[in-house]
Write a protein that binds this DNA or RNA. Structure first.
Lengths: 200, 200
DNA sequence: TTGGCAAACGGAACGCTGTTCCGTATCGTT
DNA sequence: AACGATACGGAACAGCGTTCCGTTTGCCAA
């Protein structure tokens, strides 16, 4: 068996044991707090839940975005990796795109406040923005290009724009009479070419 | 010449002169502050701009929603009243719907932070929610029904849902690479029946 | 014109946020 | 065991919305 240490790179000289323990505890506490109060859960709540001081949070996660990214990184990775798989397994690129967007929507609507945070222009969420975009835009672009190459959709919509639109539609999901999934379905439908076009 | 007093109803015994003056001043100040800082402009900023104390704001507008509604009431009314007009003047109900939604979008994207506030689940915005819904949902429903009766669109989308979706898409309008109008156009396009259905 | 009272005002004060900072405690090594 | 570096805790600060009450101001009646 190789090194126990998960940080096998040599650049960082390995953190103290209590630091690593606290980081893990904080991730759990934050995940729990996010479920209850959304991703805007007060810093003090998270700290109390983890049994640490607020300073410890800021030491490990300088901005709220860092904490959010750390909590959801695994799920975002899974979503990103599902893209190529879907493209290979689906009957048409457009079907793959629709399925992949469904995955993304399922992820978003179950994270209270995340969609809101994603569109926030608050500087504290810049990292969050960047991470989601870096990770998901290329995947979406690949699906979009494939569908465009197959002539299934219009070509004047960018992956960035589509993801942002989908993210926006997920804001407030869970409200009584609003079904974010249905609206996203409409948006994706609008992406298709209209057979026969509009009024002549 | 009739009564100078704009409040000709007898139910309210007519406010003091300074109170009416301050209310008008506050509306101007709030409108100006909203342009600069969005509808979340700090209460103290608005108060300072109007040259009054913060207490005066809360006396006239108990919640932020009351202030926002007061500032934008005229424009919302205009939008609501444009609905029937468009329906009468347009070639098809769907065209009228599209034009009306464009009006709504134009209004939203020029009010920094308003779309965000509209979807906020914060209790302070309940009145805002209620006002927009009361005023615009019936108008949208009329256009939607007309388009549905003409067989132009699918019938499983409610006016409430559509307005909410459009409002959501307007969040973050003004961001560099995101065109809210285009996304709304996509959504409205998705509303139409697909000629010929899916891939053969 | 003036007296008085209800209406309205101003801003200090409170509570809740995020964020910073430094004295103290702990870990790992020598 | 001792020491230095690392990490911790939480008090303290700043910015926000909101409340509250002593003071001022407008209005009307005498």
């Amino acid at each position: 068996m190789a090194d126990i240490d998960s940080e096998s790179g040599r650049s960082t000289p390995r953190k103290r044991a209590d630091a690593r323990r606290n980081e893990a505890t904080l991730l759990d506490a934050a995940a729990a707090a996010f479920v209850i109060s959304g991703v805007d859960a007060p810093v003090r709540d998270i700290a109390a839940r983890a049994g640490v001081g607020v300073g410890t949070i800021y030491r490990h996660f300088p901005t709220r975005a860092d904490l959010i990214v750390a909590v959801y990184r695994h799920q975002v990775e899974a979503c990103a990796q599902a893209g190529p798989t879907l493209l290979a397994d689906s009957s048409t690129p457009h079907a793959a795109l629709a399925q992949w967007i469904n995955l993304f929507v399922d992820f978003l609507v179950t994270k209270h406040g995340l969609a809101e945070a994603l569109q926030s222009d608050n500087a504290a969420f810049e990292t969050l923005h960047a991470y989601f975009l870096d990770r998901l835009v290329p995947v979406c672009a690949q699906l979009l290009d494939a569908a465009a190459a197959a002539g299934e959709i219009r070509t004047d919509v960018t992956a960035f724009e589509l993801l942002r639109g989908v993210g926006n539609l997920c804001i407030g999901a869970g409200a009584p009479r609003y079904d974010a999934r249905r609206m996203v379905e409409l948006l994706v439908a609008g992406l298709r070419h209209h057979r026969g076009g509009g009024p002549r």
